[in-house]
Design a protein around this nucleic acid. Structure first.
Lengths: 226, 226
DNA sequence: CCTACCGAATTGTTCAACAATCCTACAAGC
DNA sequence: GCTTGTAGGATTGTTGAACAATTCGGTAGG
């Protein structure tokens, strides 16, 4: 999907928008579109048409670009422009490196033992699987892993995890989505949660590392084909 | 001399000559001053005089502010202005929460066993202690802990650690610096490194958590007095 | 002493202009 | 045929000025 195709859509959402912090608002609008896959990886985000459609000035739009670039959602090439990031194989390895550290550390040293959100995420994933909803499974799966890091109670670690999961969505969009990708991992999550609640944190962490290694391998394999 | 041989050299020069990103350049100038303590926490960064001094326009300066705000180095209050962040007690707790996770996880699961940088940092710290240089001890100590996270080989985790250490400098600047703060921790670092190299990673991680808890407590105590 | 209001100063945002850089195409030379 | 050089046009990088919105300090009035 190209930029031109979603321009009318964006225009509709931005007609009567009065906001303080316009730059952050513009960033969130673009982030939404990119997360949803309406702006595919590699797409060029030209300043002029976007300004016109969002109803902001070029300066404000550039603030939004700076925000998104810092989140690795968008890549800025000097004097060339801004593009939706197209994750490389190295990016995938880096993302999973971060996830292995963050998630296994959270399972090992977290202090908050409230796992309601994790149970809810697993329930949502199973419901989505029963209905055959791939986006539903993907979303619920991300909620589970975000919830694991939320056990740390740290805003900054949560922010980093949120960012990495946003990059994960880019990875999914940049390759042919295998409809069956998420399904087998749902029960893995359940086992990890079970071990964690049984008090066997090392086992939970080890299972998580194993899970993430398998997922990484599968994504790298798919990436090399694309 | 062939083309390939001089390519890296050329690239290095062109990177250095990159004044083409004025916003980032201005941000780094301010970051330097703040890190060095020349701009104390709580100081107001008025736009107009800064523009004049840095020789950039207000728009460019605001891009720099946006960058620093995302790094928590600077706090933006709408319609009031931009201030050097004054860390709160909660900030200190959050910083140490992140450090405990990042550093103990690095000691537990790191793959790279090259500890040269860590030995060098300890040596620098001891040399600074012998000379009685407090900034030298602080800097070397930060190098050691940054090096621990560098064991992960992850750019993103390194970036997060760098950011958190920058916030640590703000913490130090915002309270009366105790000249003896760093000294007792130097040998703790050495013990942690020793356990790590002996292959006893759980012990190294546990010592690190203990170290960070003591440092946090000490800083919180000092903060409550200020 | 407190409150309401007014004006100065500062920030938030936009606009228009210019400089610097890159892309495309096309001609010239080996 | 392939590379190299050279316009021209388009896009980005940066600036300066303008105006709206908001805050702050002082002051008159109760």
């Amino acid at each position: 999907m190209t930029l031109d195709e979603i321009l009318p859509d964006l225009r509709r959402q931005s007609v009567d928008a009065r906001h303080t912090e316009t730059g952050l608002w513009a960033a969130s609008m673009l982030r939404e579109r990119i997360s949803a896959g309406q702006l595919a990886p590699g797409a060029k985000l030209s300043e002029e048409p976007l300004c016109e459609v969002l109803g902001v000035s070029r300066n404000t739009l550039r603030e939004a670009f700076a925000t998104l670039a810092r989140e690795h959602v968008v890549t800025r090439i000097p004097n060339r422009g801004v593009f939706v990031t197209r994750p490389t194989a190295d990016d995938i390895r880096e993302i999973y490196r971060v996830r292995r550290f963050l998630e296994s550390a959270a399972l090992t040293w977290s202090t908050s033992p409230t796992t309601d959100a994790l149970h809810a995420a697993i329930a949502r994933a199973r419901a989505a699987r029963d209905v055959g909803s791939v986006p539903g499974m993907a979303s619920a799966n991300q909620d589970f892993h975000a919830g694991v890091v939320a056990l740390t109670g740290s805003d900054r670690l949560n922010a980093q995890m949120t960012q990495v999961l946003a990059e994960m969505r880019l990875v999914f969009h940049s390759m042919v989505a295998n409809p069956l990708f998420h399904a087998p991992y749902i029960d893995d999550n359940a086992v990890i949660l079970d071990r964690f609640e049984a008090g066997d944190r090392p086992a939970a962490a080890a299972l998580m590392v194993d899970y993430l290694r398998r997922a990484e391998e599968q994504l790298l394999e798919a990436h090399s084909r694309a």
